[in-house]
Computed example of a mutant assay.
Amino acid sequence: MADPHQPDFGLAGKTVLITGASRGIGRAIAEGCWRSGADLLLGVRDKASVADIVAGAQAAGRRALALRMDVGTLAEIRNAVAEGHKAMGRIDVLVNNVGIGTEAPPEDVTEEDFDQTVNVNLKGTFFVSQTVGRLMIAQGGGRIVNISSQAGTVALHKESIYCMTKAAINHLTRCLAFEWARHKINVNSVGPTFIWTDGTRPYLSEAKYHDATLNHIPLGRIGDPIDVVGAVIFLASPAAGLITGANLLIDGGWSLG
């Protein structure tokens, strides 16, 4: 029985669906969620890429299933969510993690880059939310956590389209929170700064790039995936029950300048 005097930060008994769980922040979130007691649904393009996460979760007594899901294709979203829901019986938490970005000055952005970034980052986030949201409405509630970025709040060099989509995700978060509060669905987002991942390591390992980045972060360090994991688990947990429509910046103070 929950202690009314102690916040509950656990996810025991919850089923969490995470998109883009094969690497980087998504992989770290998946690991953190099962270690916090959750069962896992992992939406990925290659199911073999998360075989070790599935095995680790199952060895700890959790249920875990990889789902083939390209968030740029509505049919795949719907098929994957239906498969996951049938296997688990419910989806309590959705983490919209998938995101891409192409670096280019705005005068050089191609239509292909524009369409692909919007399709994955914004359209994908919306339709995964819609598909899972319908199930959450039917079951009487749930949590959605969108992985946004500090780029949704501040401008970044050569990242105009990426920044645009993340700003849109921040407002989509507020809109869905407003629409679905009556269904007891909490919708929030988190906005990380630069995080050490396989994708960012080649850039951040260059001294000039690293130092220039660090100059924007008052707390004086690049983020680690666990910094994002903690925020996501908090927003997915009972402890955040009265929080909805918020964007929690994990930026070390970047946006303060």
Rank of each mutant, 00 (worst) to 15 (best):
A80S: 01
D52K: 11
I53H: 09
G84C: 02
G56I: 00
L65K: 14
D52L: 11
R62H: 05
A59F: 01
I77V: 15
T73W: 11
H85G: 11
D52S: 14
A59D: 07
D52M: 11
L74C: 08
A64L: 09
D70T: 13
A82G: 09
L67K: 12
N79P: 01
A82I: 07
G61M: 01
R62D: 08
I77M: 09
A57I: 13
A80M: 02
D70M: 10
I77E: 09
Q58V: 13
A87L: 04
I77Y: 10
G72K: 00
R68Q: 14
A66G: 14
N79K: 15
A51T: 06
G61Q: 03
A87Y: 12
D70H: 06
R78G: 03
A59W: 03
A82E: 08
A75P: 02
D52G: 11
D70F: 12
R62E: 06
R63Y: 05
I53P: 04
G84E: 04
G61R: 06
L74H: 12
A57C: 01
A59E: 12
A51G: 05
A51E: 08
V81L: 05
A51D: 05
D70Q: 13
D52R: 11
R68E: 14
V71C: 11
Q58E: 15
V81G: 00
T73S: 14
H85E: 13
A64E: 04
A57V: 09
G72N: 04
V81D: 01
V54P: 07
T73Q: 15
A82C: 10
G84I: 02
R68V: 14
I77K: 12
G72D: 03
Q58C: 10
V54F: 06
D70S: 07
T73H: 15
A55T: 07
R62M: 08
G72F: 00
R63K: 06
G56Q: 02
Q58F: 05
E83T: 02
R78D: 03
A64K: 10
